[in-house]
Simulated assay, not measured.
Amino acid sequence: MSRYRADERRALHGFPEPQPASGGLTDAMRLLRAALAVRGVETLDGDVHEMHSGRWTLSVAQGVLVWCGPARFGWPGGTGAWTWHPLDDPEGAAQLLAKHLDADPLLRLRRAFPG
């Protein structure tokens, strides 16, 4: 399997260039990132994107995209069902996400060996 650079993948699939996460980043997303960092899940500014709908997404690990909507955080669970958590509890969402990442052996490997 050939490996593409991130900018080549975006162009290949028609995704927009990532925007810096400063300025319009919601407080909930900022608090979620801080709570994840305390639990050893580091994210970069480039992992945060504002969607056309006004919602924010955070790429936590390959295959795990957290949505931040007007009332809740959401991410795909291990069984394919979505996990939802109230927006006013980013600490609780970070705790659930960290457990999700640690429970999945593939995600543990991706976290241990990024890229």
Rank of each mutant, 00 (worst) to 15 (best):
L58Q: 09
D104M: 05
W82Q: 09
A61G: 10
L97S: 05
L25F: 07
L32F: 05
W56R: 12
E91A: 12
M29K: 06
L31W: 07
L109N: 11
A34D: 15
P105F: 06
A6E: 14
S22Y: 06
A11T: 06
R111C: 05
Q95E: 09
G54T: 06
P105R: 07
M51K: 04
G115T: 09
P114D: 10
R5A: 15
A37C: 12
G46I: 06
R39G: 01
H52M: 11
F73W: 08
S22F: 06
L44W: 07
R111Q: 14
D89K: 01
A6H: 13
Y4P: 05
Y4W: 15
E8M: 11
V64E: 11
F73D: 10
L101C: 12
R10L: 13
R39A: 12
A81W: 00
R55K: 10
G40N: 07
W82C: 02
H52C: 07
R30C: 03
E42N: 07
L101F: 07
D47H: 11
D89P: 01
E17I: 15
P70Q: 12
P70A: 14
D104F: 06
A81K: 09
R55P: 02
S59L: 15
V41M: 10
L101N: 08
G54V: 08
G46V: 08
M1Q: 12
L101E: 05
L31P: 00
T43E: 10
A98F: 00
H85S: 11
A71F: 06
V64I: 15
